[in-house]
Amino acid sequence: MEARGLTLALGGKTILESVDFTAAPGEVTAIVGPNGAGKTTLLKALSGELKGVGPVRLNGTALTDLRGWQVAEMRGVLPQASALAFPFTVIEVVRIGLSSGRGGGDDRRALQALARVDLAGFAGRYYNDLSGGEQQRVQLARVLTQIWEPMSEGQPRWLLLDEPVASLDVGHQFTVMDIAREFAASGGGVIAVMHDLNLTAMFADKVWVMHRGRVAASGAPRDTLTTDLMQTIYGCPLQVNTVPPLGIPFVLPQTRVS
């Protein structure tokens, strides 16, 4: 997945300014940054939802050269929140993922996907009756049924996640991030917009730090999540440390107090 020179201005305000972005299959790539840095916009450009921002290539082919169903076969997108107009049940929502792309897969896959997001037994419930975090996981199950195998005909598939853990409890944050890790470990690519720097440090292979529509840094967590950079872009005192044996950085907001 690669993008070159993405630029977008809305109403005189620059949202993205010549952003070059790459993500490799087999890795979890995280996009972090303060509110309004352009993270979600970047993800929308990568998913093809936002057109005319700049060239985006999916497995070497320009998105504009692919038909909608061809793109849908190669990548799934988890949006931040999805409201439903009609009283669909959980299993009916997940099944909508089955029908995308070239189709295929049966109801067993939908039930498997629900079990994977820890919602086994929720199949017959109304989607609109669930909590925000549960709805988010139902949507993830729907996206997973869409691109069940991380590899398709030798090509990696892509999981694009917009704040996938935003409304989840800590246990289910791990459930979801484990799914992302496994997907990448099996050869697929994962691109996730993240707010939680600690989860990012634990699960991401590469981090892209966005600030004011530009890429402020990119690379491994330990090279990008640095005290100086974090303090600059978030505009508050933050101390980044590392867990000794693994070298994973962690951020303690409590340092602000001292």
Binding site: E49, G68, V71, A72, P79, S100, G101
Partner: peptide
């Protein structure tokens, strides 16, 4: 039918699912 089902989740999601 398929398109309208996907549209129930919004136009963006329908597009992600490959619906024209």
């Amino acid at each position: 039918a398929r398109g309208l089902n996907a549209l129930a989740m919004g136009e963006a999601v329908a597009a992600h699912l490959g619906i024209p």
